[in-house]
Design a binder for these strands. Structure first.
Lengths: 291, 291
DNA sequence: TTATCGCTATTCATATTTGCATACCCTTTG
DNA sequence: CAAAGGGTATGCAAATATGAATAGCGATAA
C-alpha cells in the first residue's frame, strides 16, 4: 500500500486547481510529462480516474471531487508548516520576499532597498510589484506594504504614517487649461482616472460623490504612469503630496478634503519573529518615516 | 522556494516518530541512505537542523519540535484522504486487510476465508492476526473483528451474536485432578491464565472477584495455545463454548455465570461504502452466524 | 579493556525518473 | 476552410535519485 505518497496529493491538488497538467507542472516546477505520468500512476494505484481528460485540460471526476476538500486542508497544513519553519529562522542570510504596489516600489523603495542591501549583504531581496494584495498565507510574500488595514486575523501589522493626498497638475497644464477652483469646475478638466481598479470610485463614494471610471478620458491602473502623465501635462492627478511636489506639480485647492492614505507594514504572524523579516520591517518602518 | 515538498514533511514526521533513520526508512519503504540525504537537503533548505544526531538515533531540535504538531495535522489529512479514496472504490478487486485475534483467526476464519476467496477471486485478502486493536485511522486494517464495543466515534460497527464462554477441561485432567463443583474448589485447580493481557483480571473484577494473573501457574496470552493446552490435559481453560465442545472438553459447572463475549465487525466510516469492504463484512456477518 | 551492536554518513554502480522533442487531438480564429 | 494555439500522451537519451556495501562512530555489555 504505497498510496501514502504525500507528493501525489500535492500533485493532485495542483492539477485540480490549475485545471491543466501544463499549468500545474509550471507551478510545481516539474515538467508536464512527469506530471502526466505521476497522475497515471496515482490513478492506477487508486483504481479509478481522478480527472476526466479533454484536449482543453482536466476536470475532476466525482471521485476526485470528493477528495478535493480534505486535500485543501492538507495544503493549509503544508503552508502553515512552511511559515512556521521560516518563522524560526534566525539567520540574516537567505531570501525575503517583499510586496509593494507600483508607486511605492518605484518612488520610495529604490533608495531604501539599496541601503538595506548594503547593510545586510547576505539577505537576498525579492520584490513583488503588484497592485493586488499578495497572499501571505501562501507565502507569495513575506512582508507586504499595504495602503489598507489588514482583513485577516493572523497577520502581524505595523501602522506607519499617513500619506497625504491631493489634486495635482503641472504648471503648463494649468496655463493651458486654467485652474479649477471648486469641485464643479474640477470635473470639467482632464482628470487621470483608473482603468479597472475600483479604488477611485470607492474613495469618491466615501466622500459622498458618485464617480465612475468611465467618466475619465485618460485611464490607467498604473500609478507611476499617472504621475508621469501629469508631469507631461496630460491632466490632473490624485496622488501622494510629497511625490507630486517633488515632481514640481502644483497643488489644486478645489474644496475637496481628500483622506490621507494609511500606510501599513504587514507579515504573517507565524513569521513575525523571523530575524530577516523583522530586520526588513524595522528598516522599512524607520526609513520610510524619514522620507 | 522549493521547500513546499510535501514528501519532505512525510519524511520528517516518520523520522521524528521513529527516532532513527533506519526505522523510518523501513516504514517508508525507502533506504536509510536516501532518508539521510533527503533530510540533509531539507535541513539545508530550511537553514537549520531539524534533528540532533547521535549514534543512537536522532532527536528533535527545538526547531523541529515546533513543527511536529502541525505536521501531525498534515498526516491526519493524508490518512483521511487515503480512507476517502479507498472508501469510494467500487471494484471487487484489490486488497482488503482484515484484523482478528488469534482465536478467531485460527478457529473461525480458515474455512470462511477459503470460501470467501472462491466467491471473490479478484480480492486479495491480508489478515493481520493480533491481540491488540489495530488502528483503523491509519488503515492498519480495513475491517476488524473485535470482542469489545468500539470506542471511537468514526467507525461503522455491526454487532453480531454473543459468544458464550465457559470453564472447560479435558476428561483426562478431570480424572486425574477431580472435578471442581464450586468457585471455592475451582481455584484449587490449575487454571490456564493470561501472561500480560489484563482482560482476564478485568473480566473477573466485573464479576465481583479479585483475580491476579500471577495466581496462575501456566500463563500465556495466546488463546489458541490455552485451548491446545487444555486439550493436552494441562488445566482448566476459560474459552468459547462451541470451540471447547468441538474439542471434546467437558464443561464445568462451578456456579459462576460467565458473561458472553460480544462479537463486533467494524470498519472506518470513511470506507464503509467501499464495495470490497462491504462485501467482506457482509460475508463474515452471514457465515459467522452459521458457525 | 575489548568486542559487539546499532546507528549515521559516504561511495559508487545502477535503475528509475525526468525533461526534451514530438506526435496527435480538439477548439478557436482569421 | 486552413492555420494556429492550446491541450495531453509517448519515445528516448540524459540526469537524477536510489540502494547495496562499507566506513566510522559511540554506547553498552562481557
Amino acid at each position: 500500500m504505497n498510496s501514502d505518497n504525500w507528493q501525489w496529493w500535492q500533485y493532485f491538488l495542483a492539477i485540480a486547481e490549475q485545471g491543466s497538467l501544463s499549468r500545474a507542472a509550471d507551478k510545481l516546477a516539474v515538467s508536464q510529462p512527469t506530471l502526466s505520468r505521476q497522475l497515471q500512476a496515482m490513478e492506477a494505484q487508486l483504481g479509478q480516474p481522478l480527472f476526466d481528460r479533454s484536449t482543453q485540460g482536466l476536470s475532476l471526476t466525482d471521485f476526485g471531487q470528493g477528495l478535493l476538500e480534505e486535500c485543501q486542508h492538507m495544503q493549509s497544513s503544508a503552508q502553515k508548516l512552511q511559515r512556521l519553519a521560516t518563522g524560526q529562522a534566525q539567520t540574516l542570510s537567505g531570501r525575503v520576499r517583499l510586496s509593494a504596489n507600483e508607486l511605492m516600489a518605484l518612488h520610495y523603495l529604490p533608495g531604501l532597498l539599496s541601503r538595506f542591501m548594503q547593510r545586510y549583504p547576505q539577505i537576498s531581496l525579492e520584490v513583488e510589484v503588484s497592485n493586488h494584495a499578495s497572499n501571505l498565507d501562501k507565502r507569495d510574500a513575506d512582508v507586504a506594504i499595504r495602503m489598507f488595514p489588514p482583513t485577516q486575523l493572523d497577520v502581524y501589522c505595523r501602522r506607519l504614517f499617513d500619506i497625504p493626498l491631493g489634486f495635482y497638475a503641472s504648471l503648463e497644464y494649468l496655463a493651458q487649461q486654467g485652474e479649477p477652483c471648486d469641485s464643479q469646475s474640477l470635473f470639467q478638466h482632464r482628470i487621470l482616472g483608473y482603468d479597472r481598479d475600483p479604488q477611485f470610485e470607492e474613495g469618491a463614494r466615501q466622500l459622498g460623490m458618485s464617480v465612475k471610471n468611465e467618466q475619465f478620458l485618460l485611464r490607467t491602473d498604473c500609478l507611476p504612469l499617472q504621475l508621469e502623465l501629469a508631469k507631461q501635462h496630460a491632466g490632473i492627478v490624485v496622488s501622494h503630496q510629497t511625490l507630486c511636489e517633488a515632481a514640481g506639480l502644483i497643488k489644486l485647492d478645489v474644496g475637496i478634503e481628500l483622506p490621507a492614505l494609511p500606510l501599513y507594514l504587514v507579515c504573517h504572524r507565524d513569521v513575525q519573529h523571523n530575524k530577516k523579516i523583522r530586520v526588513l520591517m524595522d528598516f522599512l518602518a524607520e526609513t520610510l518615516e524619514l522620507k
